[in-house]
Every structure is written in C-alpha cells, then in structure tokens.
Write a protein that binds this DNA or RNA. Structure first.
Lengths: 177, 177
DNA sequence: CCACGATCCTTTAAGCTTCAAACGTCTCGA
DNA sequence: TCGAGACGTTTGAAGCTTAAAGGATCGTGG
C-alpha cells in the first residue's frame, strides 16, 4: 500500500494556457491521474478484503491467497511456482508456508522428481477452511464491483488487458536486462 | 502485494450447461476475473516503480510517496492528514517520518495551533531530491501506460471512477459500522 | 471550571516484504 | 564423468504494515 501520487515538478513551469483545473485538483499528466486512480481502486478493494478477512476469519490476505492458489491445483505447486502466481518474492514463501503447515492447512514435501523443489498441497482441513473464506470473499468482490453494468465490466476487462500488456513489457524488461 | 485469485468453491458444483471455458482458464465469476486483472495491473506497475526507485535512487516507494504528498502542499501536512492521503495506517508514519527527518529531507514540528498535531514539511534538500525522482517516475508511468490511446484512457478513467465509488462505499461502511 | 469523549500521535507485537547472499541440487556439454 | 552454470530454496538484514493499547491534548456540555 502506498500512493504514488502526482508530481508537482512541472505544474508551476507550465504556462497557463492549458490551466483547466475544472476538477483535477493537482495531478499533471493524464497518465499519472490514471495510474493514481487505478491504484486507489486496487488499494480500496484490497484493504477492505484484508480487514474483513481478519475480522470474520482471523486470517491474513497472504495466507488466504496462498490457499487460493493451491485450491486451484489439487496436485500442489512448488514454492517458486507459488511465488510467481502470487507475485511475491520467493524468499517470502518460506515463512508463510511454514506457518500454514503448522496450522495443518497445507503439507510440504520435497518433489520426487526434483530434489531442489518443495511441493505444497492443501490438506483436507485446509481445503475446508478455504472454502468458507472463498465464498465470503466472492460476495465481497461482487459487492464492490456492483456499480458496473455488464457491458462496462467487459470494456474494463479489455482496457485493463491492454494496460497490463504495457506494464508487463516494462516489468519484464527489467529482469531480462 | 498478494493476488487474491478466484475461488474453486463452486466451479465443480456448477452444471456443465454453462461451461464455456473458451479462454477463461479457471476464474468463475466475471467480477473475480475483473478484480484479478485490476490487481495484476496495479501490482505490475507498483513493483516496477519500486524496483527502479531502488535501483536508480536507492529509495523506497513509501518514502517517495511521502515526499510526493508533501511536495503538493508547501505549508506541510499533519501526520494524520498524510496517513489519509497515503492510505496507510497512522502508526506507520512515525517511523517513516523519523527516517526522513534524519535524512534531512523533511522537518517536523508541533503544530502551533494544535498541541497534538505534528506538521511535516519538505526541506530544500528534500524538495530537490524529490524533483529528480519525480521526473523519472513520471517517465516510467507514461511508459507503462503507453499502450492506451487517448480515448481509451478517458474511458478507463470513467470506468475506474465508478468502480472506485462502489469500493469506497464498502470501505467506509466498515469504519462507520 | 472540569469531566467527558474525540482526536492525534506513539508504541508494541506480530507478520509481511524485499533484496542479496549462500547453499544444495540439477542439467548439459566437453 | 566432471565441471560450469542454471535453478529452487533458505537465511538475514532492513524496512513496511497493521491492529490494538496507551498517553497527550483539544473542545464542549454541564
């Protein structure tokens, strides 16, 4: 969480010919405003989910997320596969998995085909716990997306797909270089 | 960071009349897919910014964010005003402000009108440091939004505004209740 | 005037997160 | 077969984050 926000860098230097701050209070470039808005949406949803998860189930979002990933793959996933899907660094998973193993919700074993890899898998208890949370989670998401009509959602999906493509290019350009 | 992902909860219970998984690999409800995609965009952009900020300036995102907020208000902001704008908990700011004061980039003093409030303000050094980072940050954002045409950006702004409204309702319903 | 509730900040404990470095395992080519 | 490099995971240090509890200050209604 953390709001990037617009720069003030050139809002002073800019000549006043284009000074139409009808409703834009401060942000300069439309791209910055767009990013700011996307980020706000994301944070709002995420924070709400996090709070409700804690309040109603005493759970954290990363734990729920990990369970959700495993729920989709009954055979289990390696830790690095998990870290890719959850979009977190791999060093992160060791402790997270550790705690979930202690809770009895997942089990971890060395891959039979690759001595380096650890495979995590849901236990029956973990699956049951997850199922309850997932139902609530789904309701929350639907509630928070309620303001959009069907055709709007579809439009949004497409536009975000485009953005995602741009963003991923920049993202990957990093690790490659 | 943490990817909520779809539930598997009812993907088995659902009758196969509606089983058109042409391209949707796993997610059930369109709302979940939408949220997932928004979240992915957000994380992709955020992670890229974070990495570049570290690589090129040795800075972290929260520090940059705080400077950005202060840059918009020369007179300074109280810590609680900052926490609202940055969308983080207030307990968070104490240490963050502390470190930025040590770096000499901001200064903090008790508000003359309210003995409880601490007002943070950029120093000249902080403003200079921020300016350099802000210019780069702006370039990065523009780069990552490059795939969208002008009319698409505008559309996206509107759709996200609607979503934001829904999400904020849910968000505020929490603290009010 | 003063007690009460609201507000602002800090502290604490627990957990999450990243990066970078280290270690074991695997793969593949010489 | 053996070595180099790639890969999967763990560890450590530093920092971020939250929720909850505590202390200081403010404003207001008695």
């Amino acid at each position: 969480m953390s709001l990037i926000a617009s720069s003030i860098s050139n809002s002073i230097a800019r000549p006043d010919a284009e000074t139409r701050l009808d409703q834009a209070p401060a942000a300069d470039h439309p791209e910055l405003r767009l990013w700011l808005r996307l980020f706000t949406c994301s944070t709002l949803v995420e924070t709400t989910i996090r709070r409700r998860l804690r309040a109603e189930f005493g759970e954290t979002l990363p734990r729920f997320d990990l369970l959700a990933q495993l729920a989709k793959v009954p055979a289990g996933l390696t830790l690095s596969e998990l870290s890719k899907r959850m979009m977190v660094s791999n060093g992160n998973l060791t402790a997270l998995v550790e705690r979930l193993v202690e809770a009895g919700w997942i089990e971890r074993r060395t891959s039979p085909t690759d001595g380096r890899a650890q495979v995590a898998r849901l236990t029956a208890a973990g699956r049951a716990a997850f199922r309850k949370m997932a139902a609530a989670h789904e309701r929350w998401i639907v509630e928070m997306t309620g303001g959009l009509a069907t055709h709007e959602s579809e439009q949004l999906m497409e536009l975000l797909a485009k953005w995602k493509a741009s963003a991923r290019r920049a993202f990957e350009g990093e690790t490659a270089a």
